[in-house]
């Protein structure tokens, strides 16, 4: 941590949060919330949490602000004032907020100081992770090894949660029309309403780089910040860029609804399948060291490293499919006819 930067970034964050709440225009609120997310990423980088910052970078720049803009596009942009006679609700809310803040403030006095070496959180289990990760798994990035190996159950069920969220969005929003002939896209014909050649050209140049970079992030997560979640979100963001700069139909031609749900399933199944493979070989669920029996020329330590790579690939596939599915459903209000 660098306290000078810490203080300045925290000030900016509080200003941004206030402005996001106070501004009366929903599109502007979404945009200021994007700036808030940038500053959050800076804060976490500066506190040393590079993996968290990477996730926030890909999520905040690529997905969440675009989702807000899509939702505002599909609904209305204006905020109406509350009808008169309801000012009491505001006062009550303010009182409840102040009370909660007061309780937290009193409880906060018992907490260990900021950046204290002997805070209880960093005394019990984390020294084991820090000292043993190279010895156990040969993975220098502790966050990856804790995420995919030591706490593998947790991450598996988080992936299931994301998959469930994608299914919930489809269940809430999707409207099927009976006669909806799907016309395949013609990507090089400038359709009406999208006359912007420059944006299309630059997007066409950048999308392969973004996808290649996402694959690098997934594969190199053992040695540098990154991993399945970040790579999956970046892959999804590349498809969102394609859907915005080209046509909605272009993305549907590459990744239609059936493929999205299938890939989401496949990602979760890869994760659980590796776990069951370990179980079938005679070890515990998600104990990758037994995989050295089937993988050629690996000892028990390297087998754990390779097993982690396998589940990161599963996570990346699931997250990519779900992010694309959520975006396509929100931006077309479940009709899949035309997007932003």
């Amino acid at each position: 941590m660098i306290w000078q930067l810490d203080l300045s970034v925290l000030t900016l964050i509080v200003i941004c949060a206030f402005a996001t709440i106070m501004v009366k225009d929903l599109l502007s609120a979404a945009i200021i919330f994007g700036a808030y997310s940038f500053l959050m990423c800076l804060l976490w980088t500066e506190m040393g949490a590079v993996d968290v910052a990477f996730t926030e970078a890909s999520v905040g720049a690529g997905v969440s602000t675009v989702l807000f803009i899509a939702a505002v596009y599909q609904t209305s942009r204006t905020v109406k004032p509350r009808k008169s006679g309801r000012g009491l609700a505001k006062i009550f809310a303010l009182l409840a907020t102040l009370l909660t803040g007061l309780v937290l403030l009193i409880a906060e006095a018992d907490f260990p100081g900021f950046a204290d070496l002997s805070s209880p959180a960093s005394l019990h289990v984390s020294p084991y992770y820090i000292t043993q990760t190279l010895h156990d798994t040969n993975v220098p990035n502790m966050v990856t090894s804790v995420l995919a190996d030591y706490r593998g159950y947790d991450t598996m069920l988080e992936t299931v949660v994301i998959f469930t969220a994608g299914l919930a969005v489809i269940a809430i929003l999707r409207r099927y029309k009976k006669d909806q002939p799907f016309t395949p896209p013609e990507p090089y014909i400038l359709s009406k309403g999208y006359p912007d050649t420059i944006i299309r050209f630059v997007a066409r140049q950048l999308v392969p780089f973004i996808q290649l970079f996402a694959l690098y992030v997934v594969a190199h997560g053992h040695h540098s910040p990154g991993g399945g979640f970040q790579g999956g979100v970046i892959l999804g963001a590349s498809f969102i860029l394609l859907a915005i700069s080209y046509d909605f139909k272009t993305v549907l031609g590459i990744m239609n609804e059936k493929w999205n749900v299938l890939l989401g399933n496949l990602g979760v199944l890869i994760y659980a399948g590796i776990g069951f493979l370990c179980l079938g070989l005679g070890a515990n669920f998600l104990d990758y060291s037994i995989l050295s029996k089937v993988l050629p020329a690996t000892d028990r330590v390297m087998a754990r490293s390779h097993g982690m790579l396998g589940i990161e690939i599963g996570v990346a596939i699931a997250v990519m499919a779900i992010v694309i599915s959520i975006y396509l459903n929100v931006v077309s209000r479940g009709k899949y006819d035309k997007g932003l």
């Binding site: 999520v59 289990v125 966050v143 994301i162 969005v169 959520i326 929100v330």
Partner: peptide, 24 residues
Amino acid sequence: NPLPHVLMLTAIVVSVGTLGVALA
């Protein structure tokens, strides 16, 4: 300490899921 980073990393990605459901 790597442990809170792991918990919060998954929380951010799950927050995208909850954001999608809330907007839906």
